[in-house]
C-alpha cells in the first residue's frame, strides 16, 4: 500500500462530505487532486483493498432485521452447505471458522418476520440445524482500523 492509499484508508472510513465536489474537498485535505483521488479509489476497489465506498446503513435502525447464524457442518459436506447458504440473497457475509461450529453467516432481512422462515428453509435445504444469535445489545465501537 502506498502513502496515498494509507492516507485514504485513515481519512475516509467515515466523514465523506455532503458537498457538490466531495472528492475535491477530501483531495485537498490529503494533498492531492480530485482526479487522482477518484482514480485511486477505483483502483483500490478493483484490487479489493476496499470492499465498498458509500453510506453504511444500520439495518435495524432502517427497519430491517439482522442476525448472526452458526452451523455445525461435517467437513465432507461443507462446500455443499456453504453454497446453499450463499445462494440466499439475504446472506450478506459468510465465514468459515476453525471451531466445532464452523460456518458463520450474517442475515440481513427486510423485517424480523422474514428471518424465521429463511432459517427454516436453510435447515430444510441443508439438513443441519442453524443457531440464531441476534444481537440483543451493541456496545459502542469506533470502527476504524489503522493502515
Amino acid at each position: 500500500m502506498d502513502e496515498l492509499e494509507r492516507a485514504i484508508v485513515n481519512r475516509l472510513q467515515g466523514g465523506f462530505p455532503l458537498a457538490e465536489r466531495p472528492f475535491a474537498a477530501v483531495a485537498q485535505e490529503l494533498g492531492t487532486d480530485e482526479a487522482t483521488l477518484i482514480a485511486k479509489l477505483k483502483d483500490m476497489l478493483a484490487a479489493g483493498t476496499l470492499t465498498r465506498f458509500g453510506p453504511m446503513y444500520d439495518v435495524e435502525r432502517m427497519g430491517g432485521a439482522f442476525t448472526l447464524c452458526a452451523m455445525r457442518v461435517p467437513q465432507a459436506d461443507f462446500e455443499r452447505v456453504a453454497s446453499l447458504v450463499n445462494a440466499h440473497p439475504e446472506v450478506a457475509h459468510n465465514y468459515a471458522r476453525a471451531h466445532e461450529f464452523n460456518l458463520w453467516f450474517v442475515i440481513a432481512a427486510a423485517s424480523r418476520g422474514r428471518i424465521a422462515p429463511l432459517l427454516a428453509a436453510i435447515e430444510a435445504e441443508t439438513g443441519y440445524a442453524v443457531l440464531d444469535l441476534p444481537r440483543e445489545q451493541e456496545y459502542f465501537i469506533e470502527l476504524r482500523l489503522v493502515a
Binding site: 466523514g15 465498498r52 453504511m56 435502525r61
Partner: peptide
C-alpha cells in the same frame, strides 16, 4: 440509520 459515509477497507 446511516453509521458513516466512506470507505470500507
Amino acid at each position: 440509520r446511516i453509521r458513516r459515509i466512506g470507505a470500507v477497507p
